[in-house]
Amino acid sequence: MLEININYAPQISLLKDIDEQLTDAWNSVYKLQNLSEHVDHENGTNEDYDEEETYFSSKIQRIHLSLCLLLESLGYVQLLQDFKSGYSAYSGNPTSCSPTRDGDFHSSTLSYFWRFHKTTSSLINLESVETDERKQRVLLEAILRNTPKIVHDRKITPNSEAEVRNCVYDLLIHVFPDTMREIPVPQVTKTYKADLGVPSLKTAAEYKYATTEEEARKIIGGFYEDMRGYAGSEDWKHFYAVLFMSKPFFTVEQIRAEFAHVGADKNWSPILVHGEGTRKRR
């Protein structure tokens, strides 16, 4: 086994870059899945889908080139030949994504790249636990972004935050068995409770629900208190602020701009979604 030292610094840097490229490429797969629902099946066209597919294709090409360069620079001649030979099975249609039994898109090309990335990581004795966690967080984020579809598939029209949250929880426990609800995060003067959390990923999600623009505006401001409440926790390092709106009152770009303006914690990511929803009259 090769030892990590300064002589392998360029290869380690390249390996980490490939890791980031793979994460970005998997994100692209999840975007293609969402966009596929809006493709004009009669004409077979969708501008956003075509643009994302082009981006995904460029990612595939770059990862392939990076892996070839990595294996060559490490002197693994036979492994490089095996990689190129095996890739021929995917090179004809490298961006092909097929739905799994659960309906989620899967890329065989990326899975092939991942196996070689994982093998090479072990060969240079590089810890890849963080890489695995990052990939799992990408999957978790994709599920959170698909909240409206999850709720719709349950055939309900929610009228509260709890109903939305419970629909997502019922799905998450099958993907991440350690998913928890109302996780206590103690501070000096108060114990906060995160709506959903996956301890193995140190990731929590705070769900909010709005049926008016004014309500949504207040909720966005309320996220800042949550940020302070969860700050400094060693058990939870990554957070998602999920706002389910009955109409698209705001865009996620607006919220990101506001987060940046007020200096929000970098480990908080906003997710804005909208779907059918009502509010119970008191």
Rank of each mutant, 00 (worst) to 15 (best):
S58G: 08
G103S: 13
Y87F: 08
R282N: 12
Q21P: 07
H274E: 08
V168A: 04
A162K: 12
K31M: 14
L35V: 05
N5W: 11
A162L: 11
R279H: 10
L69S: 13
N93C: 10
S36V: 08
K149E: 15
F244M: 03
Y8V: 15
N7L: 10
F239Y: 10
P199Y: 02
D104E: 13
D235M: 09
P177T: 03
A241V: 12
R154V: 08
L67D: 02
G44F: 06
N43T: 15
K135N: 07
T203G: 03
Q11R: 07
F223Q: 08
P148V: 02
R281M: 14
L65A: 10
V273M: 01
F259C: 05
K202D: 11
S122M: 12
I143G: 02
M245R: 04
I124C: 04
K190Q: 09
L22T: 01
E42P: 02
Q61I: 07
K59D: 09
I12S: 04
T251L: 04
G44R: 08
V29Q: 02
N46H: 08
W268S: 05
D132Y: 14
K208T: 06
L126A: 14
L140V: 02
P10F: 05
S233H: 06
G232A: 05
V151R: 02
L123Y: 09
T109D: 00
N34W: 10
S108C: 11
Y49K: 06
Y230W: 01
W236G: 03
K59N: 12
F259D: 01
Y230H: 03
D170C: 06
T131I: 07
S122H: 13
T109L: 00
N43Q: 11
S107E: 10
G103Q: 11
T189Y: 08
T109V: 00
